[in-house]
Amino acid sequence: MSDSPAIVHGAPTEAGHSHGEHPAYQRHHFETVEQQADATNFAMWLFLLTEVMFFGGLFCAYLIYRNWYYPAFVSASHQLDVRWGTANTFALIFSSFTMAMGVWCAEMKKKGGLVLCLSLTFLLGMVFLGIKTIEYHEKWEKHHIPGIRYSMQSFLNPASDEAAAAYGDKPLPLDMARHTEIYFFLYFAMTGMHALHMIIGIAILGYMIIRARAGAYTTGHVTFVENFGLYWHFVDIIWIYLFALLYLISRHP
């Protein structure tokens, strides 16, 4: 019973604070650095869980309408350029790789390598967003923005549309053609939400590059880089699914 909790009164003494030398980055309420790293890492995973459920609602909507309006979804998906989509998938996969290497560099305390890897990740993220902008712009020009600027021309008369003609799409009945708008809404909602995550990620990457150049993260405290890595890989995973679901519904002519 000697080690039972003591009933405590009065002010904490200075002695209460001075035991053990803590590194500067250890917050006062943690006992050890490992505890702090574990806790923040776990918190990041839980945050990613909330992200899974957030996207879950969109995936749910996608699956329902894809089942209901399959022909509309096929024709509408032909309007996306599979080459851009593939390029973007490669960009994100490579950025995930450079991010993983960045974490490795931080753990091995290689400052130069870390800055290089983060910069490459930053760059690949920008490439992704650049390509996405081109794609969005094309949708704007072809009047495929649901709710704001929408025309069913490409689906009622596919011969008039280059992309549709290339896949030999047959004209959809008006009733089905109208439902392409739901496909495009889901396309914009899902890729838009994904792009928003990319933008946030890139902003944090920029901040991290500046900090890494000043020598942060390579002194043994790698939690921030690790946790950001988890976020970045998660964004990559979302895209892997979006690519399969939005671009690759059915491409055979």
């Binding site: 309408y65 709710g147 704001i148 708008e181 739901i182």
Partner: peptide
């Protein structure tokens, strides 16, 4: 913007 996911008239 009337995107249609909850709108029966748009499917």
């Amino acid at each position: 913007i009337g995107i249609g996911v909850f709108d029966p008239t748009k499917g």
